[in-house]
Design a protein around this nucleic acid. Sequence first.
DNA 1: GGGAGCTACCTTACAACGTAAGGTAGCCCT
DNA 2: AGGGCTACCTTACGTTGTAAGGTAGCTCCC
Lengths: 217, 217
Amino acid sequence: MRKALTRDRVLLAAVGIADRDGLPAVTMRRLGAELGVEAMSLYHHLRGKDALLDGVAETLIGEVLTAVAAADGPGGWRVRLRAWFLAAREVMLRHRWGPGLLNSRATVPFGVLRHYDAIIGVMVGDGLSYRIAHRALHAFGSMPLGFVQEAFSPSGDGGDGGMSAVADRLPHLAAMVASEAHEAELGWCDSQVEFEFTLDLLLDGLDRARRSEDPLV
Amino acid sequence: MRKALTRDRVLLAAVGIADRDGLPAVTMRRLGAELGVEAMSLYHHLRGKDALLDGVAETLIGEVLTAVAAADGPGGWRVRLRAWFLAAREVMLRHRWGPGLLNSRATVPFGVLRHYDAIIGVMVGDGLSYRIAHRALHAFGSMPLGFVQEAFSPSGDGGDGGMSAVADRLPHLAAMVASEAHEAELGWCDSQVEFEFTLDLLLDGLDRARRSEDPLV
DNA sequence: GGGAGCTACCTTACAACGTAAGGTAGCCCT
DNA sequence: AGGGCTACCTTACGTTGTAAGGTAGCTCCC
């Protein structure tokens, strides 16, 4: 006699499949098989595939919210937000399908809104105007969720990503890789360093924007 | 007697379908029908669906490169990159499926690399170090391609995005919307303004990082 | 100038997907 | 005891990408 099916068990199983085999591997049939059940049985707990993915997204940001809460501590808005975003990032590193999933959802998961609400709360609580807080949210982009849009991901790992083959057509890029490679910490392109660099760049800029808006502070 | 099928004609047709009916509407059968041909005939010009989408992505960033070239002019790295990114953004506004497509591709389209190469060229040409240029690329995220990761898109258009229904659970967000709404330019949340704000925030920060790296300049 | 061979297209077919429709076994409640 | 509800299953359909193989028409060469 197996455990009774519940919405949460289904979502957990879906997360597991995505972790192991990627998001496209999460099909209704596969999910059912994983739970010892036929695909159509899932429909008694979820309205369909879209609802399933929405649920997975909610589960994911639930994990983010938990991690953020655990990483929170005393301090001003800058240090707290910094810790929050880095905590969220760790969750996304555990679930590399996370960014893709969140991008694909039509409606913003409610947990995301709660997260943004908390971020605004921290900022205005420290005296930032709603205007700055608003712009800050836009500037952060997806950083509050722990990832950035990496339009340029040089084939993941270290190495030059097979770029030497076309270096003559990409002279500046090749030169940059050559220049940066010898002083690399973890491969020529350490995302963690870059993430924090961008994060601090934004936080610094926002802090400056705040001061220029309210010169007395 | 209809025009002969070519790879370019196929890609153009795919772009057209995506523009009209969205990216999911681009199926092999639909694409064939659009060209007066059976689906399997497309395989003589493209290796499969993935190759098709890669081709569409290349077509898209080809349009970006053209727009960027047209928007280029004299000036320092800041003003030139600013103009470039805004030009790219206009292309993405014409093809709203663009960001999603680029996100979904496993390999970075070559045109993207050429674009990044040009960006690096402008920066180091103006004296920025490769280190700063490298970090700048990461900080920009997808801005060079004309879009940002909008994790929080308040239901597209104006209005509060149906948020008043849950305002009690999102007090800070609701307060921010209320505070910002009455001074909105185009709906309460004007993406163009936000895009430029973030862009300038980053450019300012990078300029400052450059100076602190090389205090003599 | 007539077969060889290539190109560009079509036909058929299959596996996998999401899911609509309806069936059934076991439980609870009155 | 029996009606009804819940949780699961069975079957089936339409759509997707694409493998396999067929065919008409052009070019080329001896």
